[in-house]
Every structure is written in structure tokens, then in C-alpha cells.
């Protein structure tokens, strides 16, 4: 009974950390930070599958979610950043739009 209650505490901590991670991942403005949070999210998901007694799924998640998606996102990020040198990693479209309108206005003034 003792270990059962401690497992419940483990569940609650795990789920609340997962939800916190997901929330921070989806609302952070820095996209690189979101990617790093996603890597650790996959890692904790593997722990959740272990807790759900699904070792097959946990193996797949450990290899794919925690291992391979991270590099995928990082290389895609690099590929996109190489194109956008000045608008690095900021996920606010308003700023971009205002920048662009400013640029075109300046050129028109020229």
C-alpha cells in the first residue's frame, strides 16, 4: 500500500511536469527554447510509457522522441535560420511585419 501511494505521487509529479513542459514549449517566444523543451518532453514521455507498463512504446519513444526528433528539429531550425539571418529565432510575426513595412517605407522614401 505504501509503494502504491508513492507511485501515485510519482504519477502526479510526472504528469504535472509534462503539462508544464508542454505549456512552456508552446508559449515560449524563443523557438530554439521550444525545441530543447520538446527534446526533454519526449524524454519524460518515455518515462510515462514506462509507468504505463508499455516497454515497447517506451523503447520507441526513447529512440524516436528523445533521440531523433531533436536533431530533426535542430537541423531544420538551422536550415531556416540560414535563410533568415536577422530574424533569428523570434516567433513574433507582428515584429516581422512591422519590420517589413518599415523597410519598404524606407525604400520608397529613397
Amino acid at each position: 500500500m505504501m509503494s502504491y501511494s508513492i507511485l501515485t505521487v510519482f504519477d502526479i509529479v510526472l504528469i504535472s511536469t509534462l503539462l508544464w513542459l508542454a505549456w512552456k514549449m508552446l508559449r515560449s517566444e524563443d523557438i530554439f527554447k521550444a525545441v530543447v523543451l520538446f527534446i526533454s518532453f519526449g524524454l519524460l514521455m518515455a518515462l510515462a510509457w514506462v509507468r504505463m507498463r508499455a516497454p515497447d512504446v517506451a523503447l520507441a519513444e526513447a529512440a524516436l522522441g528523445a533521440g531523433l526528433t531533436g536533431p530533426l528539429f535542430l537541423s531544420a531550425l538551422r536550415r531556416m535560420e540560414r535563410l533568415h539571418k536577422d530574424e533569428r529565432r523570434v516567433d513574433i510575426d507582428e515584429e516581422r511585419k512591422s519590420d517589413r513595412t518599415l523597410d519598404t517605407k524606407q525604400k520608397e522614401a529613397l
Binding site: A22, M25, L26, I31, A34, V35, F38, F73, D91
Partner: peptide, 14 residues
Amino acid sequence: ACSHPLRKILAVNV
């Protein structure tokens, strides 16, 4: 709600 394509992909994953 988010407009950045990478964030949309992350959201679909979540």
C-alpha cells in the same frame, strides 16, 4: 493561435 510553422509542427506533435 501560433503562426510560426515550426511551432505548428510542435503543436501537432503534442
